[in-house]
Amino acid sequence: MTSEERDGLLAAYALGSLSGPEANAVEELARSDPAAASQLAEYQEVADLIALDTPLQRADPALRARVLRAARQTERSRRRRVPIPQLLAIAALLAAVAVAVGWGVQLQGELDTLREESAALQVAVASDSRRIDVLDRELVSGTEQELRNALAQVKNTHQRSVAILADPDVSTAQLVSAQAGHGAGGRCVWSIAENAGVLIAQALPPLPLGTLYEVWLDDGVNVVSAGTFLPEAEGDAQLLIEVGVPFAPRFVIVAPTQPGEADGPQPPIVLSGDFTP
């Protein structure tokens, strides 16, 4: 390749005007040759300045309010994610453990803060994990082994939930009550990156004896179970949902089930929802 050919490829790449194979070749060149990478960065800087040549047009003044409103809704959804229902259960368990070892109040306060502020979430999680590790090392008796296992499970669930809810590309499904749902509602989020999700439901109707609720995910071709659960006394539930294979669900369904007996959701369907990015 001559110097001119190389310059031409880098320049065209910066403009986004190369076809796939040529673009791949430039990316490989930039990875292996720092001088080429530097030159490409200069071309890209210049290419993006071309935008300034655009004749200016005034946007609809109402657009500002629309954009800020959309951002605020994003903010609300971000903040709604923080009081992760999974964290509430974790908070209760961790608080109980904390009381036993004398730092329950402090931990509860930290968890309250954790629920309120998304920006501090990752830091708080790391802090909590360190505390749990400390607690873990202090537990020595046989009965405490069970507690240690429970803590490890809580910690894992906690970290998985945080990872899912921190995924900016998470898909969300608003769960709508079917007739049998009697006004139940909820929300389900799914992270392709984590191949897992979090389901939150409220006001689920009481179950017949011996049955559970089961979560089903449908990608338009296959329907798979993502777990079973029993709601709290008020009909609320929150759980981490996972399937064993990579999955990109389009629909989520919640229906009563008898464990291990169904290959798919059976009537009566209680909640359902479509995932949207």
Partner: peptide
């Protein structure tokens, strides 16, 4: 087209580059 792209981008790079 390739030649024009290269020449144009090099000219712009000379005039506008080094702003980072």
């Amino acid at each position: 087209v390739k030649t024009r792209t290269r020449l144009a981008m090099n000219r712009l790079r000379q005039r506008l580059g080094g702003r980072s």
